[in-house]
């Protein structure tokens, strides 16, 4: 079964065809992804949901170039990343992809500002000062830039991670349970920020989550089970997501 997010061919940020991922061999062989076909529209906030072991994290890792796919192709901004070597893949990541993780988002030895600037610093590029100011102001981090991660609250740390992801104006920002470690109020704050970045900055966001409330902030929800895409919700609400999940037997 193939499910494709609504798009026209010109505004696709990320696209995968016939994507498969196999771990192990023989009796320990696990097919984490079975020929997934998926496209993510530019400027949209998409959530991927599914029960544990459904392959949602594997899908994200492959799409982001963090893990090699066993078969199929992945295109980010028109580039087939499945054919890139490690260095090219790394460069692609720092130019076209941003990340927000559940935890351990920041390099503990660097200040918040240095963390935000890290991907550009690694690329040896100058940052756009005005853009940095806009992001920092939007995320309310102005007074926190000189702090080390351990001097920041969980929500502040996550906002620093979001700022870092947005600074490079990447093709796509991947979020891996970005609110998993936050209390509900701080979590809602971060999710609102992510959503407004799609609305106001046209940022493409793909987020993996198992939290129906988090998913309800997305424009589209993709449902996965046993390594395949099995459903899709547009303009989801907490109720519609919960219902769809229970339809998967979760």
């Amino acid at each position: 079964m193939t499910i494709t997010a609504p798009h026209t061919s010109t505004d696709i940020a990320v696209h995968a065809t016939n994507l498969s991922k196999i771990y192990g061999a023989g009796t320990t062989r696990v097919e984490a992804l079975r020929g997934v076909e998926v496209s993510f529209a530019r400027g949209k906030f998409t959530a991927i949901m599914g029960p544990s072991g459904s392959g949602k994290s594997t899908l994200m890792h492959c799409l982001a170039g963090l893990d090699d796919a066993s078969g199929g192709s992945i295109y980010i901004g028109g580039t087939d990343i499945s054919k890139l070597n490690d260095d090219a893949l790394t460069k692609m990541r720092r130019e076209k992809v941003g990340f927000v993780f559940q935890s351990f988002n920041l390099v503990p030895t660097l200040t918040a500002e240095a963390n935000i600037l890290l991907p550009l610093a690694l690329a040896g590029k100058k940052h756009d000062a005005a853009w940095l100011e806009t992001i920092v102001a939007t995320l309310g981090l102005k007074d926190r830039l000189t702090h080390k991660p351990h001097e920041l609250s969980g929500g502040q740390q996550q906002r620093v991670a979001v700022a870092r992801a947005l600074l490079t104006r990447p093709e796509v920002v991947f979020g891996d349970e970005p609110t998993g470690n936050l209390d509900s109020r701080t979590g809602a704050e971060v999710l609102s920020l992510l959503r407004s970045s799609t609305r106001e900055m046209g940022q493409t966001i793909i987020m993996v989550t198992h939290d129906a409330i988090a998913a309800s902030y997305a424009d589209t929800v993709l449902l996965m089970k046993d390594g395949e895409l099995v459903g899709q919700l547009e303009d989801p609400t907490v109720e519609s997501v919960t219902q769809a999940l229970s339809g998967l037997g979760v």
Binding site: L66, R94, F99, F104
Partner: peptide, 16 residues
């Protein structure tokens, strides 16, 4: 290790 892995994710080359 995790810190280094994070750096790699954010685009640090192996040589870096």
């Amino acid at each position: 290790t995790r810190e280094l892995a994070l750096m790699r994710t954010l685009g640090a080359l192996r040589s870096q």
